[in-house]
C-alpha cells in the first residue's frame, strides 16, 4: 500500500468536513456524526490537528483576561430621578413597550369600523337630500310637505307671494310628464309660473285625477319616503358613534405613535 505524500493528504483533507471535526472537538457531535468525525480524526492527521487546535482555541479564549472596568456605573439619585422621569413619562414609556403592542391593531380596527359607520351614517342623508327635489317635482305627495321638507315649488311660492300660481300640491296643475321631460330649465319654470287659464271646476278633475295616484302610491311611496325620515335618528346615531369611534381610535393611534417615537428603547429590541 502506497503511503500518500503531504500534498495528496492535503487534497484528501480538503474533502473532509472541517465543521464536523470542529463540532466533534468540543463534544457537540453525536450519533452517526460522532462516529464519522472520530473516523476522520483517526484516519487524517490534519483532521486530528484541527480537532486539537479547536480545543486549544476554546480553552485559550476562555482564559483571556477580563478588562477591568474603567468607571463605577452606579447611579446617583439625580441620575435616577432623571432616568425615571415623571409619572406621565413612565406611563408613556409603558405604552410604548411591547406589552401594548396589541392595542395598535385594535385601534386600527376601531378606526376602520368608525370610518365605515361614519360613511354608512352619512351617505343616506346625502342621498335623501339629492333625491328629494326630483321627487317633489313630479309627484304630489302630501307626506313630503308634512315631513317638513319644503319643495322647491313651495319655496318659489313664498318668493312670488300669494298671487303666484298654486303649486301642484295645493291643487294646481301638474305639468304633463312629456312636457317635463321635453322642457328643461326656464321652460319648466315658465310652465309653473303661468297663471291658471282654466276654471276652478276644470282644475278639479285634474286634482281628482292626481288624487287617486297619490292615494294609490300612498302605501308604497309613503313607506319609501317615510323610511329615510323615520330612520334619520338611527342614522344620526350611527354617524355620531362612527365619528366618535374614529376620533377615539385616531387619538389612541396618535398617542401610541408619539409614545413610540419618543420613548421606544432600541436597546430592548
Amino acid at each position: 500500500m502506497a503511503v500518500p505524500n503531504n500534498q495528496s493528504l492535503s487534497a484528501e483533507h480538503r474533502r473532509h468536513d472541517r465543521l464536523l471535526v470542529a463540532r466533534f472537538a468540543v463534544g457537540d457531535a453525536s450519533g452517526a456524526q460522532e462516529h464519522e468525525a472520530r473516523d476522520l480524526v483517526r484516519r487524517c492527521s490534519e483532521c486530528a490537528a484541527l480537532a486539537a487546535d479547536i480545543t486549544a482555541i476554546s480553552t485559550s479564549v476562555a482564559q483571556l483576561p477580563a478588562a477591568p472596568r474603567s468607571r463605577d456605573f452606579r447611579f446617583t439619585s439625580d441620575q435616577a430621578a432623571r432616568m425615571r422621569g415623571s409619572r406621565f413619562d413612565r406611563w408613556l414609556r409603558t405604552i410604548s413597550g411591547s406589552g401594548w403592542a396589541t392595542v395598535r391593531p385594535v385601534a386600527a380596527v376601531a378606526l376602520s369600523v368608525g370610518l365605515v359607520m361614519s360613511v354608512v351614517g352619512f351617505l343616506p342623508i346625502l342621498g335623501a337630500a339629492s333625491t328629494a327635489p326630483a321627487d317633489t317635482l313630479f309627484t304630489t305627495n302630501a307626506p313630503i310637505a308634512v315631513a317638513g321638507q319644503p319643495s322647491p315649488e313651495q319655496a318659489s311660492d313664498t318668493r312670488t307671494g300669494p298671487g303666484a300660481a298654486p303649486s301642484p300640491a295645493q291643487g294646481g296643475i301638474e305639468p304633463p310628464l312629456g312636457v317635463a321631460e321635453s322642457t328643461a330649465g326656464g321652460q319648466l319654470d315658465n310652465a309653473y309660473l303661468q297663471p291658471p287659464t282654466s276654471a276652478p271646476e276644470q282644475q278639479q278633475p285634474v286634482a281628482q285625477q292626481t288624487q287617486p295616484t297619490s292615494g294609490k302610491a300612498g302605501t308604497g311611496n309613503d313607506l319609501g319616503r317615510q323610511l329615510p325620515g323615520s330612520s334619520n335618528g338611527l342614522r344620526d346615531l350611527i354617524l355620531f358613534v362612527g365619528i366618535l369611534v374614529t376620533l377615539f381610535a385616531l387619538f389612541v393611534l396618535a398617542l401610541l405613535y408619539a409614545a413610540r417615537r419618543r420613548y421606544y428603547d432600541p436597546l430592548l429590541r
Binding site: A67, R69, F73, F75, A80, L268
Partner: peptide
C-alpha cells in the same frame, strides 16, 4: 469590551445599557 474592543466605547455602552435597564425595569 471583548465585543467592541475599545474600553471607552465599552464603558459608554455599559452605561447606556444600565440606563435602559433602569428605565425599563418594569418590563
Amino acid at each position: 469590551v471583548r465585543v467592541v474592543r475599545d474600553r471607552d466605547s465599552a464603558a459608554d455602552a455599559v452605561q447606556e445599557a444600565l440606563f435602559s435597564c433602569y428605565r425599563n425595569l418594569d418590563r
